[in-house]
Every structure is written in C-alpha cells, then in structure tokens.
C-alpha cells in the first residue's frame, strides 16, 4: 500500500511548553491507524499539527508525497484531509444540513446533493433531523454529524479525534461500527482515542504517545496483547 501521510520528527510548542517532542509516524492508504495515550499526551496536538491549525518548528509532514507543513488549515481540505476535532465542534446554531454543506465548502456546488445523499445513507439519523438546529441533537447524533460533515469533502484521510468522548457505551459501539464500515468502504483513518481498547480493536496499526513522545508502536493486535499497554491503558 502506498504511503498517504508521513509525519517526520515534528516538534510543537505552546509558548514555552514543549508539547510534541520529535514525533514520527505514517499512515498507509486504506489503513486505520490509531494514536492512543493518556490525557495530555499530545494526541490532539499532533492532529492539529497535521491539519495545519498548529505548526511544527522542525521536521516535515507530507501528504501523498507533497510537503504540507506550514500550509494553512483551510487549504488542506482541498488536498483531501478532513479532521473531526475533539468535542465535535459542529456549528450548533446551524441546521444539520447546513453543517453538512459547510463540510462541502471546498467542493463545487453541483456535487453537494450527491454528497448529501451519500452521507444520509451512511447516517440515516441525520436525514431524519435534516432541518433541525444542530445544537438540539444528542451527543451521539452530534458525533455522527461531525463525521458526516467531514465526509462531505470526500477526504482521502479522515482524522478522528476522540469520537467516543462523552458517549454512552452503546453509542461508542455504534460509532466504532461506523468507523469499521468507513474503513471497509476504503477510507483511510487516523484515529486518536483515550479508549484504547476500542481503538486497538479496529486499528491496523497503533502508536502509543506519552508526554509528547511515541513510546511504542505495532499492529493493533500486538499492542492489545502487550503487557505495557495492558497495564497502562487497558486496566490490567
């Protein structure tokens, strides 16, 4: 499989705080790769750096072989990168459909109806709530909306930040089912999760991030059975 995303030796600072210390990883086409780690390990910061909301002082980030380090976030969407941020960050005062339309902002208007159709097929619940104001959706529906919105840009790489956060276990199952389906349909996914158990169970490969550094990597299976991961993240 061809390499889609390559992150090489990035260092990110928040003022004087060195949040990401020389992180390198890669995602191949068609894979689900997960970054797991505790709160504050730098998972979200890593995603923000890939999507251009933050910038690294060193190293390189390449997407389909092109260097995208330093490219502003709004230009990366056209390259095929979609980022579902932590906390969903949907537009609460806009309707469900308007949120989805914003996801297709970089696409020609003529493609929007077909993309909407595709997303509604994937998330029938969103179709039922089409005209509803997004702020009135339940947490699980908001997560679906955030994912649907990202899919509107027909991304080559979908980055999901904590999709299970704050959801009831049954909804977490549902969200991960959707992640599996998207993967089967050929979407490449970079998944950041605190719920290591769930994340490792769907991932082809995984990286463990600790205080800004990658400390372990391997296939999902390897890590789920690794003693260190079990002790630190899977409750024994």
């Amino acid at each position: 499989m061809a390499e889609l995303l390559n992150v090489n030796d990035i260092n990110v600072y928040y003022g004087a705080i060195h949040a990401i210390k020389g992180v390198s990883f890669h995602v191949d086409e068609g894979e689900i790769v997960t970054l797991i780690g505790a709160n504050g390990a730098g998972k979200s910061t890593t995603l923000h750096t890939v999507s251009g909301l933050l910038h690294s002082k060193t190293g390189s980030i390449s997407f389909e072989g092109k260097n995208i380090a330093g490219v502003p976030a709004h230009k990366l969407v056209e390259h095929g990168l979609a980022h579902v941020p932590e906390g969903r960050r949907i537009f609460l005062q806009m309707t469900v459909e308007e949120n989805l339309e914003m996801g297709a902002f970089t696409q020609p208007n003529a493609n929007t109806p077909a993309s909407l159709e595709r997303v509604y097929e994937q998330f029938p619940r969103l179709k039922e709530r089409q005209r509803q104001i997004a702020g009135t959706l339940s947490g699980g529906e908001q997560q679906m909306l955030a994912m649907g919105r990202a899919l509107m840009s027909k991304p080559k790489l979908l980055m999901l930040d904590e999709p299970s956060m704050g959801l009831a276990p049954i909804l977490v199952e549902q969200i991960f089912d959707i992640i599996r389906q998207l993967h089967q349909a050929g979407t490449t996914i970079l998944l950041v999760e605190q719920n290591a158990q769930m994340a490792l169970s769907v991932a082809d490969r995984a990286y463990v991030l600790e205080t800004g550094k990658i400390t372990l990597s391997g296939t999902g299976d390897e890590l789920i059975h690794s003693d260190e991961v079990r002790k630190a993240y899977l409750g024994g």
Binding site: L53, A82, P85, F91, Q93, M102, F105, T106, A150, S153
Partner: peptide, 11 residues
Amino acid sequence: EDKDAARLMGI
C-alpha cells in the same frame, strides 16, 4: 460560531 472548525471545513 467557531473559527477553527470553519478552517477545518476549508473556509
């Protein structure tokens, strides 16, 4: 509503 989220939409 949310400038960073808007950026992530390509706006």
